[in-house]
Structure formats: C-alpha cells, structure tokens
Design a protein around this nucleic acid. Structure first.
Length: 645
DNA sequence: GTTTCGGTTCTTTTT
DNA sequence: GAACCGAAAC
C-alpha cells in the first residue's frame, strides 16, 4: 500500500524537510525545487507514521494546489488520506463556520457572496443612501477598499484617508456605506470572502471550547505558499498549531506576489523569530530549467531588499539561450510569437508545451486576434472568471433562490432578466413579497405573477414554469435538474436573444450543469461554486479540440506553480511590466520584480522576452516604450538579442 | 419614473 | 466583456 521510497524518490534537501522531526519547521522552497512534491511526501510520511489523516490540516491558497496535493498523496498512501482536512483557507474557514456559525449569530445555511455579489451589494448601498454622484467612488473601488482593510488588518479610516487624499470625498459617507453593507450582509445571512476568514478567526478567539477542540484535533498543520498569507491567516495558523506546535510552513519569499490583496510576507520572514526553535530547510536544487534561465532568475531577484537569500542551482544541461526580441509594436510581437510557435511545432513541441505569459489580460489582445485569425487553438484563463460570467451567474440565481429564499441579490438578478423589469421594479417587488421569495411556494409564484408589470408577464410564465416542473424533492436533491429545466424553459431563449456568442455560452452552461451534477444538494453546490473561481482546465475545454495542441495564454499570477518547456513573456516594457499602477502601491517595484522572477522560472527549455518599441495608447496615439528595467538590469550577455519586424 | 438601448470606456493581479 | 452614461421609449 505504501508505494513510495523517500530515499529514492527525493533528493537530500527534500528528504531532510520531509523527515523533519516534530516542532515548527520552515521550508524555504525556491522555484522549481519540488515544493509540492516535498509537501506531498511529508503528508504521506506522517500518515505512514500512524498519524490519523483527520488530525492533519493542509492549507493552500488555490483550489488547484489543494486538489493536486491530495491527489498525489492519495497515489502515495492510498485512500487513507481521504479524511485529511485539506483545502484553501476560505474552504477551511467555511467548513468550520458551517458547523459553528450559530455561535457568531449566523444561521447555519448562510450564503457566501463572491466578489461580484459583494460589489453589487455595495452598489445597492450607495444607491439606497443616495450617494451616487460623479465624485463619489464607484462600488468596485469601495468594495476593494473594504476588503483590503480586512485583509491588511488596517482600520478603514486609515486606509480611506490615504486612498482618497486627493479627492473631495466625505469619509463619513464612505463609512456609512460600509456600515450599510455590513448590515445588509447580516440581514441576508451572508458572508463575503473576507468574512469567512475573519469569522473563522473570531470563532477561535472568542470561543475557547472551539479553539481547544481544534487545537487538540490538529496534530500537524501544514501550510503551502506561506509567503502569501495575510495577517488574519497567519494568526489563524499560529493559533491552531499552538497546542501541538507541529507547524510546517512552505514558501518562497521570492514568489510573494499577492501583497496587493493583503498578503504579508513578513509572516514568512519573521517565522524564525516567532518560533525560535524552528528548523529551517532550504530547497535550492532546480530540475526544471536550463542554467541560462536560472541565471536570469537568480540575477533579477538578487537586489531585492529583505529576503532569505537563496540561489537556484541548475541540474540540467545547457540548451538554447533565452532570447530578448525587439519588435516594432504589439502586432509584430504577436506575429513573432506565432512564427516561433510554428517553428516549435515543427521541432516537435506540442501546443500544450507552450505558454504565453503577460502582466495584465489586455496585453494579450493582439495575440488573441492573430490566433483567432489563424485558427490556432489556445486556452486563456480569461479576465472574467468562469463563475462570474453573466450567463453563469444568471442561471445560478434559480439555485440560489431555491436554496435560500432570502437571497435579495439573486432575486434582483433573476427578475432583471425579464423585459420591463429593472433594478427599481425588482426592489419594489422584493419588498412587497416581504423580502423573501420561495419559488417552491405556488402562492408566491402566483402573487409575483400578478404584481409584475404587464409586459413582463409573458416571459414570467416560462420562467415560473421551471419551478412548477421541478418538484420540491429537487430542492434537496441535485441542482442539475433545476438548472437544466431553467435553461430549457427560459434561459436558452433569453440567451439567443441577448448574446451574439450564444453557442459558447450554451456550452458553458452545459459544462456548468455537468459540474453541478457532482453535487447532491443545492447547498453543497452553492458553497462550492462561490469558492471556486474557475472550472478545471480539462472540464472547460470542449471535447472537439485536441487538448494536446492547445497553447496556454495566462497572466503571470495565474501561471504560478505551473511550468512549460517554452515560455514567452509579452510586453517587457516599463509601465506594463512593471505595471505603472503597482509601482506606488504597497508591494511596489520589489513585488513586480518578484513577479518577473515567477514568469522567468516557469520556463524549462526556452524563454522569450518580448520588447515592443511602441504601444498604442488610449486614443490610438503611438507612444515610445522604454525597455523594462527588469531587462536592462540584466547583463547583456545573458540574453540573445534579436530584432523582428 | 423606469427601462432600454446604443455608444463609450476601460481594463492588474484572486479566494 | 461588462460597467457606465445619456438619450429615447414605455
């Protein structure tokens, strides 16, 4: 059953970390040094040592990382790991709160608001308080400000003062929006992403019996990507591990790229101070990339302040030199990438072995157009996340209402799909129905039918038909039926009339219905959906495309933790990468540089850095571009310089 | 008073 | 793509 051999499967550095004795452990794992592998083996090792899986807690940042590690651990030690507590911080927070939310005054069936939901709710607050004006900050700005305050553990006042220092904004108004927002969430029995973290921490801090119970339960706590934890998460982990003190954190301060959302890499930097008896292990042996690529990585990051010094040691031999390519503009850059992809294909690379990375989604516009024109298969984790696309959110409103009749946002959105009903009418109806709408109650359906404006009724009949067709049983059963029925009866027609890319959206919806049928209850589906930002790559790709030949387009952030034989980095130009906006923010230049480090270390064999000489600004005006400082900082002989026009 | 529609603008990064 | 704005339509 245990089909692994630590001595044979791992190098010395990794072995040391995996076999580390009990107590606090800090593993500094540089890029491509087998961090996931080490963590997985550590879990497997603990299980074979006789630690019951349910007494191990494994925290990650992304769903992808959680799934990958649990999957790999399962391969090593079999189904024994299935009781392991593993997942993202938000998942774990939710898992605890689902059990104990009552203690904090929430109902057990609270709803999770994703970012889009929060933003809409903030917008509703601004509307209700009649604060809408040209000068007043937009809902999205306010929402992210509220969120940042939580994640950085700063007072809203402090943060708002800095943010609006040069605007004429009455901070009192900002506060009242915030207060209203908090009240609204309470009224709805809802938590946003930040509440999941904050409330989970409160649970521990304010309820000793809960704290003691979980401190006792988790004999071992393991944290992945520790450099990305924020203050709340850091405190959470410290608290949980207090009893047994078997806390193993893995991270790479070089790859800390989330300070803009509150990540505090001081957590990792000060770990040895907070745990003076901590064992520190470094992983520096890199199997991924060629020496030339690692040279660039080592060189670019070395000057950053405040970090654990480490140098990537290459295990691979020389291959092709990394290339810096100067092009006239974005279009030529795209042409260059296309030509190279054709060459690579001729040399035997598959499309899926190639990735194009960039700082911001719109940087890939020209390339997308070119790829479309040539009908080259590509997959892009688009700027809009799968579950936040309009059509996905639209159809999910029915499940939300079926699961929670008090979901105002869902109601508003659902009714907004009817011609002749907008925000105002929806809100009026919501109040008339007593701020509650249960689609399974025939009386409510009939009442709403009567209250609706004349021209909305025709469509309403079809919408309402969905509910009468799905018997109550479905509310407790799989959400798939309900979604399918809604699409059949109403949304299919609506989508045809509304979207020009109807077919794609219909495919998304089919994918969603497939995805939903994995869940047995509406509640489960809703929770999972809110915490999931994207469908897995495999399930999103249509069967008709040969996935082997699909080139990957991605932001650098989303590429973290992944690797490809060939990597292109677009727009290595000051203002774009580093991004002009981020330079004055908290992370500043150092964080942008770390981002560049992440981009470079994704490449195994070949690396291309694109440097267009001009870019088209807002009004179509052509501007000269300065080569990115991250490139000019490098010694010239580290790169092959090419000009393409 | 509301809603719709058509045009415009703007895109950093994510659970 | 989708949020936003202003003008026209209900």
């Amino acid at each position: 059953m245990h089909t692994f051999d630590i001595e044979q499967d791992l190098n010395k550095e990794q072995q040391a970390a995996v076999l580390a004795p009990d107590g606090p452990v800090l593993v500094i794992a540089a890029a491509g040094t087998g961090k996931t592998r080490t963590l997985t083996y550590r879990v497997a090792h603990l299980v074979t040592q006789g630690i019951p899986a349910h007494r191990i807690l494994l925290l990650t940042f992304t769903n992808r990382a959680a799934n990958e590690m649990l999957e790999r651990a399962r391969v090593l030690v079999g189904s024994g790991v299935s009781n392991l507590w593993g997942g993202t911080f938000h998942h774990m927070g939710h898992r605890l709160l689902r059990r104990h939310a009552k203690l904090l005054g929430y109902g057990p069936d609270y709803v999770i608001l994703d970012q889009d939901d929060s933003q809409r709710m903030v917008k509703n607050c601004v509307d209700e308080l009649k604060l809408k004006s040209k000068d007043f900050p937009k809902a999205s700005v306010l929402q992210s400000l509220f969120s940042l305050a939580v994640n950085k553990s700063l007072s809203l006042e402090e943060l708002a003062k800095g943010r609006f220092s040069d605007h004429q904004v009455d901070l009192a108004d900002v506060f009242s929006v915030h207060r209203r927002y908090e009240e609204k969430k309470r009224a709805l029995n809802g938590m946003d992403f930040d509440d999941l973290l904050v409330n989970a921490l409160r649970l521990f801090r304010e309820h000793e019996e809960i704290r003691v119970r979980y401190q006792e339960q988790f004999q071992h706590v393991l944290v992945d990507e520790y450099q990305d934890t924020n203050i709340i998460q850091g405190a959470w982990v410290d608290l949980l591990a207090q009893r047994h003190r078997n806390l193993l954190v893995v991270g790479d301060d070089f790859q800390s790229i989330y300070s803009w959302r509150g990540a505090n890499f001081r957590n990792i930097i000060t770990f040895p101070e907070r745990y003076p008896d901590a064992q520190v292990y470094k992983l520096e042996t890199n199997y991924r990339s060629t020496p030339d690529i690692l040279n660039i990585a080592n060189r670019c990051i070395a000057g950053n302040p405040e970090q654990f010094q480490k140098v990537l040691r290459a295990m691979r031999g020389q291959h092709k030199r990394p290339v810096l390519v100067r092009t006239t503009g974005g279009y030529d850059q795209a042409r260059f990438v296309m030509e190279q992809i054709h060459r690579l294909r001729r040399e035997g690379y598959k499309g899926s072995e190639i990735a194009v990375l960039y700082r911001a989604h719109f940087h890939a516009m020209e390339l997308q157009m070119e790829m479309n024109r040539e009908r080259m298969a590509y997959d892009i984790t688009s700027g809009v996340r799968f579950f936040e696309q309009a059509h996905v959110k639209d159809v999910c409103t029915v499940v939300r209402l079926a699961g929670n009749p008090g979901d105002e946002l869902a109601f508003q959105r659902l009714l907004g799909l009817l011609k002749g009903v907008g925000d105002k009418t929806a809100l009026k109806l919501w109040v008339k129905l007593g701020r509650r709408f249960d689609p399974w109650e025939p009386e409510q359906l009939a009442l709403l039918g009567k209250l609706l404006p004349e021209r909305a009724r025709e469509n309403w009949k079809r919408m309402a038909g969905t509910f009468s067709k799905c018997i109550r049983f479905d509310a407790e059963g799989s959400p798939g039926h309900l979604l399918a029925a809604f699409v059949d009866a109403f949304y299919g027609g609506y989508a045809v009339a509304t979207f020009d890319n109807y077919r794609n959206r219909r495919e998304d919806l089919n994918g969603l219905i497939d995805f939903s049928s994995k869940y047995e209850t509406l509640q489960e589906f809703l929770e999972e959906m809110a915490l999931q930002t994207n469908l897995d790559q495999e399930s999103r790709l249509t069967g008709s495309v040969n996935t082997e030949q699909v080139v990957r387009l991605s932001t650098v952030h989303q590429a973290k933790g992944l690797e490809w034989p060939v990597v292109f980095v677009l727009w290595m130009v000051d203002g774009k990468f580093p991004s002009g906006k981020s330079l004055d923010d908290s992370g500043g230049e150092a964080e942008e540089r770390r981002l560049f480090y992440v981009a470079v270390t994704r490449a195994k064999d070949e690396l291309f850095l694109g440097v267009p000489q001009t870019s088209r600004g807002r009004d179509g005006v052509v501007q000269r571009c300065m080569t990115s400082r991250f490139v000019t900082e490098l010694p010239l002989d580290m790169l092959e310089v090419e000009t393409y026009r």
